[in-house]
Amino acid sequence: MRVLAFSHYVDLALELISAGKGLGEVSLIVTSDQEGRIGEIRGADEILLCKELDSGDQEGLVELISGLGSEYDVVLLAGDRRGRELVGQVAHRIGASSAVDVSSLSAEDGKLVIERMTFGGKAVAVEELNLPAVISVQKGKFKPLEEGEPSVREISAPSIDRRIEVLERKEKPKVGVPLDKAEIVVAVGRGFKKKEDLKLAYELAEVLGGVVGATRPLAADLKWMEEEVWIGISGVRIAPKLLIVVGASGQQQFAAGIMDSKVVVAVNTDPKAPIFEQADYGVVMDLYEFLPVLTKKLRELKGG
């Protein structure tokens, strides 16, 4: 099979190459803003370098990938927001099948068989896609390859009539320790009454040597966290050895993001909160009462 890959993020592009090599030959599109990192790219057969296109140009990307895509069996894109924005557009332009957030893929009888989460994480769908197929790959599922220096071929960008103009772009503060790599996570929810109270969670995370994550409303709506990183189906999926969920109800869309955690502790005042069904250890208590005591006990333990 011939595979075409692209991501706005070089780190994710490396994961796509790894996913694609399981199927066949991989060509990776590299845009002008990524040119400086070409030296880090391993495992692809070929780099298609487009110096005339910046990865911030969504319409240009759709045009370029759709144009090239018809010569390939599979187009792999990344599962970040901009990657997902491309999938449906490119698939439709080349008359391809599509799927997003794919966790495994293989070729079978001239089709692409993939797995992906559905129903808010309650099920995994195994789907058979006609070729050509355009899919996005779940982050963190494929390890970058270390071997194989690709050849580089320059390509030009198709000219198009643009209808989207970027007026402004503001960077968000960078994430410290990425949640998906953390060993210990304290996840906070709307049970916290004010932003300042999150200090209780940060102190607990500190004695444990962990990081703090949040539910979507806390991060995206209330913006209580430094950066918009939340856990769940529309955010990050985590796999720590210990997860302590504090003041979060455990709605399905959040729960989908914590399934791979080894040990889960839940602290919630409501004994009927769905989070208790997804926890190994449940504490039905007010977080304001419980967290300081737990932090103190852990500090004593770690100190002595």
Binding site: A96, V124, E128, P271, F276, Y281, M285, F290, K296
Partner: peptide
């Protein structure tokens, strides 16, 4: 352009132990 072959239910096993007692006991 695609067909769902199967829908699987991921197995997540949790102990679901509720720890009882006063604050000190529970934390301990």
């Amino acid at each position: 352009k695609l067909a769902i072959k199967t829908l699987k239910v991921p197995k997540v096993e949790r102990k679901q132990i509720v720890i009882e007692g006063d604050v000190e006991e529970v934390a301990e």
